[in-house]
Design a protein around this nucleic acid. Structure first.
Lengths: 149, 149
DNA sequence: AAGTTATAGTTTCATATGAAACCATTTGCA
DNA sequence: TGCAAATGGTTTCATATGAAACTATAACTT
């Protein structure tokens, strides 16, 4: 049990270190949400993100999905393989460019989307319920600034 | 490119979805820092976190390290194996309890710590430089509230 | 003291991940 | 036109990860 604080070396206090706090918070939140649909729908977080962008933008290519999800193209490729395989996404080929795929949710994909989206929103609501209006406004503004560049 | 916004199904707008934004921000920040020492010191993020808590609290057991880093015990066990192997951490056995290890940084571990810690701090400084004092105060307060419970 | 339960830590196994190599197609340009 | 470079996407390979099983020791109950 020692736990004798050391002072000679100016050690980092993880619990006050912003990158660490962000990491813990983000993982906790994402895990909680993912746990909710992972089992129920056999859907990984990467797959869900792909579905979410395809719900908003039909006909994207895999590369465009990667851009919009901030995932790398390998992850997208694999997520798509599973989604297509499961009949949740339909993959066509772009007219003037045989390299490109043209992606969209199938009816089954939409059905799942329409169940998972509210669930995700509910989690967000619960999280934001810990803040008051003023704090929510600041948070949004601050995240924007931190993510810029 | 297509990208025809779909409205019929109330799709999630990832870029405004808090858990997603947190995840992107957190990954971007952590990756940037890790990239900085990963190569130079052959040190993974999990290993660095372990070193950071051992720098603050000498003589912790593996379980206590896990608690303080919010990592699971398997991850800690493996990080420790590598750190001990590399001569960066010294692992003893607790007097009254042979199950427990008693961990502390070696001289070599301290040397690395004393180089990496300022580097991590500098990254945090750069990140926080994007905010003014008021925003920094709100951020800290907001993170505390979000992480509570 | 014996037997059950709990705890510290490691190992195993199955899955996830990213970098780099790769294939096919398209684009740029001499 | 023909060839080098770029692009979309997949595969390979090496590493990371977590859950569950496992080993050893300690604590609790009687």
């Amino acid at each position: 049990m020692s736990a004798r604080p050391n002072v000679a070396h100016a050690p980092l206090e993880l619990e006050h270190f912003l990158p660490y706090r962000l990491s813990i918070l983000s993982n906790t939140v994402s895990q909680a949400i993912a746990a909710d649909y992972q089992q129920r729908y056999e859907l990984s977080m990467t797959e869900w993100r792909v579905m979410a962008v395809l719900a908003r933008f039909e006909g994207l290519s895999a590369r465009e999905v990667a851009e919009r999800t901030a995932m790398d193209k390998v992850a997208v490729s694999r997520a798509l393989a599973r989604l297509v395989d499961a009949g949740r996404v339909d993959r066509g080929t772009h007219d003037g460019d045989k390299r490109r795929s043209v992606l969209q949710l199938t009816a089954e994909g939409w059905a799942i989307h329409d169940e998972v989206a509210p669930l995700a929103r509910e989690h967000e609501r619960e999280l934001l319920a810990k803040l008051d209006d003023e704090e929510r406004a600041w948070l949004s503004r601050i995240l924007d600034k931190l993510m810029a560049a």
